[in-house]
Computed example of a mutant assay.
Amino acid sequence: MLFTTLGNKSNPAVLFFHAMGVTGASSEPVAKALQAHYFCILPTSTVYCAGQVYQGKQDEVRQVEVFLKTQGVTRLALVVASSIGADLAMDFLTTTHLPVEHVFFDGGQFAQIGKGTRRIMVPFLYMAIKSLYWSKGGTLKKIMWCDDDAIKPYFIAAGKALTYGNMRRQMADSLEDKPFPALPEDLQCRCWFEFGSAEDHLKYRAAVRKAYPHGHHPIFEGCNHMQYQIRDPQGFASMLTSIIEQNVLPPLPFVKSA
């Protein structure tokens, strides 16, 4: 993995897990809006790091834990997980010994996909992400989960370093067709599982609500996958601050339910 940090280490820590096909830098617009008051940690998955070999989610979590220790982080005010980052974040949440105060899942891809289907998906995902690098982002509007130009540079950067082997190994142990991991009721009450009404991942919401009935499950009406985060990072950061400070969403006109 590669790690970027923004903000002062003495401030409360916020840890980001990024989406598929982008680097950890994709969270920088939000982190920059938080850095005056929070210490933001932005890992880039080994899958998108040149010269590194993806070993599995447990090893990714280990690398995160080691880095947090080197930075003197003893608790996390917030974990933010976007799209497939939710899959890795769940492994982190269920194994870490660090206190985690709040969690926000932005369009978490809580898919439960059989091994055979995941194996078939690998060449398509690999070609989709690599094509963004080869075309300098020209294929973005045709093939990816978000066609907003603001996130294009992070797709291009991820595609440059991606190897087929790393993509294959990641999909072998991600989005598995297993029951969702258990979370304590108290932590569920501080977890926010958000989906946009216009995104395909909305279909996972019912299963998430059943697995984590004590959590918050807002729908961002009219929003596509991660759209609020990408198009209004300042507003998204203000929302995260409200969750950290009060465990409530601020008044947002597009919030359908929580």
Rank of each mutant, 00 (worst) to 15 (best):
T70L: 02
G138F: 01
A86I: 06
D149T: 12
L98Y: 12
D186K: 13
Q55N: 12
H225L: 06
F254L: 02
G7W: 11
A198V: 06
K115T: 13
I230H: 06
L76R: 01
M90P: 00
S174P: 07
Y133W: 14
L88R: 05
L187G: 04
V47K: 04
N247S: 09
I41N: 02
G196Q: 07
A172C: 06
I219C: 10
I243F: 12
E194F: 02
A33M: 03
K136I: 08
R119Q: 15
K32A: 15
A258T: 10
M144F: 12
K160Q: 09
P218N: 03
K142G: 10
T4F: 09
E60N: 11
K141N: 11
Y204I: 05
D173P: 09
S26K: 09
I129V: 14
T4D: 15
V103F: 09
T139C: 11
A86D: 11
S174V: 11
G159H: 06
N11W: 00
L202I: 11
V14N: 04
I120E: 12
D149F: 11
T44D: 07
F17S: 07
W192T: 05
P253H: 09
L68E: 03
V66E: 15
A89Y: 05
A182L: 12
F3H: 04
T70F: 10
I230C: 00
H225Y: 06
A161M: 02
Y38G: 05
N11Q: 12
M167A: 15
D177Y: 12
E185I: 15
A206M: 14
T46R: 05
Y164F: 15
I156V: 15
V30N: 03
G137P: 01
P253R: 05
V61Y: 10
P250I: 00
F67N: 07
D148V: 06
H216K: 03
M20F: 13
R169I: 08
E221V: 07
F236Q: 09
L42R: 02
E199C: 05
A237H: 03
Y228I: 08
H18K: 04
S83R: 02
M127N: 13
F254T: 01
E185R: 13
